[in-house]
Simulated assay, not measured.
Amino acid sequence: MTEEPSRVAVTADAADLLRTLAAQHGPLMFHQSGGCCDGSAPMCYPVGMFLTGPGDVHLATVPVTGIDPIDVFMSTSQFEYWKYTHLTIDVVPGRGAGFSVESPTGLRFIVRSRMLTTPELEFFELIPRG
Rank of each mutant, 00 (worst) to 15 (best):
T85I: 03
M29S: 05
C44D: 01
P42I: 08
L87K: 11
D90W: 08
T61R: 14
A14V: 15
G35S: 08
L21S: 01
E122K: 09
D71T: 08
L126E: 09
P119R: 01
P128L: 10
L87E: 03
G96N: 07
L28Q: 01
E4C: 01
M43D: 02
L28R: 02
Y81E: 07
V62G: 10
L59Q: 03
G96P: 06
I127F: 06
M49I: 00
E80F: 00
F109R: 04
T2A: 03
L107Q: 06
V8F: 02
L126K: 10
R129S: 00
R7Y: 08
S77D: 10
F123L: 09
F99S: 05
G55E: 14
G106L: 14
S100Q: 12
A60W: 00
I70F: 04
G55A: 12
G96K: 04
H86C: 06
A22Q: 12
T52C: 11
L18T: 04
L59F: 05
W82D: 09
L116Y: 00
P128K: 07
P63A: 09
D71Q: 12
G53P: 08
F79V: 05
D56P: 07
H86N: 05
D71F: 04
A23E: 11
V47E: 04
P27C: 04
A12Y: 06
C37N: 15
S100I: 11
S113Q: 13
R19V: 08
I127A: 05
I70T: 03
G55C: 09
I70D: 00
Y81A: 08
V91N: 07
Y45M: 06
P69M: 05
C37P: 03
M43E: 08
S6L: 13
A15D: 02
R112V: 15
C37S: 15
P128S: 12
E102Q: 10
S113E: 10
G66L: 07
L21D: 09
V47F: 00
